[in-house]
Structure formats: structure tokens, C-alpha cells
């Protein structure tokens, strides 16, 4: 996987890039990840609202839910099962992708959002002024603003930055009983994930695929990537996410060209013909 944007500023102090490989084929939907994350990071409870949407009452990632387990009930053949199995229940623990090219990082005006020495993306609560630019810059809708208790700032997964600094794995990875959430050096994880995906396809699970493991995709690959058993849209994930600042150079160029053309046009309008 590529080096994360901004890591070069650490020079020799940069650490090997770490992240998550979430293998949804072994997720049992227990939500230990959601609870462990909230406990460790003191993320507030964010609403006792029954959604009726399968067993998912969390709904989506937000300032107050940094891990979200999705449940998708499908009338579809389950290749993990032999025989007449025309129903399956997909489960997936979603999280901030800690993108190589991170939109939130690019647009943050205060510098609250920064790239850590581990290649992860973290929001500094005491710097964030709640402007909300990052909310729209994330192609996945991971970040929102926390209004609870007059907080007003934005929050998201830190990949347990404090735990990493003490040589520990993030709380969700530690709590996950089936190792659906795996933590470690990103390159090793990608290697393992490719192996696992290949094994599944060989076993007949033809829809198995990796998501955000390709450094040539629109975000340069994710620090958190996934093994999915169907298309990303099925899980509520964007199929071809692109960091919004990707074309910034071209956009400015186009704007400059447009401004130039406008200036020429205006000049021409004034210079050519006084009636």
C-alpha cells in the first residue's frame, strides 16, 4: 500500500503504516467492537431508537458511533453453505477508512485533523472549531458533528491512537472474538487478505472481494480495508469513492482558465466596439 499522505513530514520518526483488515466472512454481528470502542474512547451513547432494520440499531458511522455493524438480510444463495440455502445474512463492522488520500485531512482549515506517525488520521478535539468542512469532504460519510453536551466538534475513529503509542492494538480489534477485525502492519494485512479472498473464491464464494485494498483507487487505498461478500452498495458503501480534493489542481486550473477566458471576454467586450 502507498505511504499515507503527509507521512513524509515525520522523516525518520514515521512508523510502519498500520491499519485494519476487516474480514466480514467471519463476522458474527456481536457488536463487541461497537461497545469496546465506546468504552475505551468514552464515546457517548447516541440514542435509544429502535430502527427495525434487522439487528442494526446504530444505523451509521457518526461522531458518536465509530464502529457500526451493518446487517443485511438477503434472498440470495449463500455459497458458504452447500445445498438449498437461498437466504443469507451479511454482517460487517464499518469504520473510518483512514484513507491514503484523506478528504477530511485535506480540507480541515484549523489543522485539527492530522496524519499520525502510524499513517492514521486523527482529529484533535481541542483544536477542532466545528466548522464542518470535513463532514462533506469524506466520501464515506464517516464524520459528523457531535451536538451532545454542547460539544460542537467533529469526531471519528482514532484507530485508538493512544493505544498505538503504548504498543497495544485498538480496542475493537482486541475485543473481536472471531478476528474479523485484524490489526497490524498494513502491507502484511493486504497480503493476508489477498490470500483469504483467493481461498474463498476457490471454495466457490465467487462474490468475495477486497474493498479499498487497491492503492490505485480513488482514495489511494484505505488504512482500513475490507473483505466483502457482495458489492459495496449492498453494505451501504460507495462503490468507487474518490477523495473530493483529487481534482483540486485541475479544478483550480479550470477556474483559472475560466477566469482568464472571462477576463479576455470582458476586455474584448469593452475594447471592441463603443456604440
Amino acid at each position: 500500500m502507498k505511504l499515507a499522505d503527509g507521512i513524509e513530514s515525520y522523516g525518520r520518526e514515521a512508523q510502519p503504516r498500520v491499519g485494519f483488515f476487516t474480514d466480514t466472512s467471519v463476522c458474527i454481528g456481536c457488536k463487541a467492537c461497537e461497545v469496546a470502542c465506546k468504552e475505551w474512547n468514552l464515546v457517548p451513547e447516541d440514542g435509544l431508537v429502535w430502527t427495525g432494520h434487522s439487528f442494526d440499531n446504530t444505523g451509521e458511522l457518526s461522531a458518536n458511533s465509530w464502529r457500526h455493524v451493518a446487517f443485511i438480510e438477503q434472498q440470495a444463495p449463500d455459497p458458504l453453505k452447500r445445498g438449498n440455502q437461498d437466504f443469507r445474512w451479511l454482517m460487517e463492522s464499518d469504520v473510518c477508512k483512514h484513507c491514503t488520500h484523506a478528504g477530511c485531512l485535506d480540507v480541515c482549515p484549523t489543522g485539527a485533523i492530522f496524519r499520525t506517525e502510524f499513517g492514521t488520521v486523527v482529529i484533535q478535539d481541542d483544536v477542532c472549531n466545528g466548522c464542518g468542512y470535513c463532514v462533506t469532504a469524506c466520501p464515506f460519510g464517516v464524520i459528523t458533528k457531535r451536538e451532545l453536551k454542547g460539544d460542537g466538534g467533529t469526531h471519528k475513529c482514532t484507530l485508538c491512537y493512544d493505544r498505538l503509542q503504548d504498543g497495544m492494538e485498538p480496542a475493537c480489534a482486541k475485543a473481536c472474538p472471531t478476528d474479523s477485525i485484524q490489526f497490524g502492519p498494513l502491507d502484511e494485512l493486504v497480503e493476508q487478505a489477498r490470500q483469504r479472498c483467493g481461498d474463498l473464491v476457490e471454495q466457490g464464494v465467487s462474490e468475495a472481494r477486497l474493498y479499498l485494498a487497491d492503492e490505485n483507487d480513488g482514495i489511494g487505498g484505505g488504512g482500513a480495508f475490507f473483505l466483502l461478500l457482495d458489492e459495496p452498495e449492498v453494505y451501504g458503501l460507495p462503490p468507487q469513492p474518490v477523495v473530493p480534493t483529487k481534482h483540486l489542481g485541475t479544478i483550480w486550473g479550470a477556474a483559472a482558465a475560466a477566469a482568464g477566458a472571462l477576463a479576455v471576454g470582458v476586455a474584448a467586450a469593452f475594447l471592441g466596439g463603443r456604440e
Partner: peptide, 26 residues
């Protein structure tokens, strides 16, 4: 039983992080 709650609920209905995972009797 559900994963999110524990038996007769004394130890889970009372905890915010568990209550919000399954917040209604259905």
C-alpha cells in the same frame, strides 16, 4: 436471547452502551 442483552436484563438494560444496541422489545 440476543447477544446485546443478558438474561433478565438487569445487567444490560441498565447500561447505555448495551441498551442502545437493542433499545426496544420486539
Amino acid at each position: 436471547r440476543l447477544t446485546e442483552h443478558h438474561t433478565a436484563g438487569g445487567m444490560s438494560r441498565t447500561l447505555p452502551y448495551l441498551a442502545e444496541l437493542q433499545p426496544a422489545f420486539f
